[in-house]
Design a protein around this nucleic acid. Sequence first.
DNA 1: CGGAATCCAGTTGGATACTG
DNA 2: CAGTATCCAACTGGATTCCG
Lengths: 129, 129
Amino acid sequence: MNVTATQASHPTDQCLKVSQVLARIGDKWSLLIVTRLGEGPMRFGQLLRSIDDISQRMLTRTLRGLERDGLVRRTVIPTLPPRVDYELTELGRSLQAPVTVLSNWAVENAPAMDAARASYDADPADRDG
Amino acid sequence: MNVTATQASHPTDQCLKVSQVLARIGDKWSLLIVTRLGEGPMRFGQLLRSIDDISQRMLTRTLRGLERDGLVRRTVIPTLPPRVDYELTELGRSLQAPVTVLSNWAVENAPAMDAARASYDADPADRDG
DNA sequence: CGGAATCCAGTTGGATACTG
DNA sequence: CAGTATCCAACTGGATTCCG
């Protein structure tokens, strides 16, 4: 693989891996779930209520995807009614730091992006001249 | 806004902003384009050829989106044939660092994710028991 | 060269109803 | 409680065609 650079300019090959990771966490709910689970293990119902705009179906599907990729561990306690706990794996926790960096950037620069978008939408003429 | 934490546990409000950013860079092409433009300004055709799996339509659309959000600046030189240069704005360049962190994580952990996925797909029975 | 417009397939994700 | 199954609307993104 020969990765020496820790800073930038990835060859095309590595861009693909980044795209794959983004495809995993870049959907509508994954990051939100990882962030919630970063606070500690949670039951299915807890997650469902703490995110609350998410549908049951999407919570199930997203958790399955995260479990499949080794980011989340699912533990079934076959009581009645059943109880299912979710928690981040070590791989999942290792993702927290990069996500935090991105989160901080997002929080800091969201106003700038909003302003840019508002400005862009304001005068469609001002650009192509 | 009152953001003091630089490390973790974002309240729900800030998670929305992160989701918005991910919606912006989490699509199929945005990050690839930002990475390319991180190497310097490029013309439309250069970008089209350097990514080359991208369709003309998606390159145009993605660039428009990035421009709209203030990450990319578009400069038209109305010669014949016309020439259009794209470059990162300051905001766009500020995104490079967070993206690099995520990229490095992706490159380092892609094998682990692949392995987890392979293992998950291998024995569907081994989990729910 | 750098688009815009149109058309179309595949995917995402929500609502609802049902199950062990 | 924690799902699964079905149906459906909206969005994404590719192929093609046309334009200044």
